[in-house]
């Protein structure tokens, strides 16, 4: 049976997923060796038992925490996939601001808002965390693939290593944080 891979994007921009698509024709090669479980690529919404889970994005709200934990429960290997998952990335640039000030400014005081605007409190909306965190601060993470996004070459090399069962190593030019 082919090993399963699940992917998701938490507080990310899907850029890492776009970069995954950039492996182009090698996607077909990949599909011969693995099967995709939950992923934006196939639009499957729930995650089952998997060999590998790729997590894009940092953790910025309650839903991110739930999804991340769900992945951790189902995946033998969790990979922090891209800069935001590794260190919080761009969303974490809000961390020097107080969340209360952010919510107030965005929904109540910034110019151009309709009168009477208030901070949304629909229970359907996930609540934001006080700070944005990299995923390794919430669950145990097995591997890290940095980059904003990691290049297609880096992803290809990394996944190949993982699937074969080899500790992934990225040489000069493939290991990048930007």
């Amino acid at each position: 049976m082919k090993p399963k891979i699940a992917t998701t994007s938490l507080a990310g921009c899907f850029g890492c997923h776009m970069s995954l698509l950039d492996i182009d024709l090698r996607l077909l090669e990949l599909l011969q060796r693995v099967e995709f479980d939950r992923s934006p690529i196939n639009d499957i919404k729930t995650v089952g038992p998997c060999a590998i889970g790729l997590i894009e994005g940092g953790v910025c709200n309650a839903e991110n925490v739930e999804v991340l934990r769900e992945f951790r429960r189902h995946c033998k290997i969790i990979v922090a996939f891209g800069a935001c998952a590794v260190n919080g990335g761009l969303p974490a640039q809000r961390n020097h601001l107080d969340l209360r000030d952010i919510l107030e400014e965005v929904y109540q005081t910034s110019p151009g808002l309709a009168p009477g605007c208030s901070i949304p409190n629909d229970p359907e909306l996930p609540l934001p965390l006080n700070k944005v965190h990299p995923i390794h601060e919430i669950v145990r993470v097995d591997y890290f693939l940095p980059g904003c996004p990691p290049s297609a070459e880096a992803i290809w090399k990394f996944l190949n290593d993982l699937i074969i069962g080899r500790t992934p190593v990225l040489g000069h030019g493939l290991l990048r944080y930007d």
Partner: peptide
């Protein structure tokens, strides 16, 4: 870590906790 958002939205439902 959800405390500030709870305070600002006034929510205390199950989804407002972890």
């Amino acid at each position: 870590a959800l405390s500030q958002a709870r305070q600002m939205t006034g929510r205390d439902d199950a989804g407002a906790h972890l």
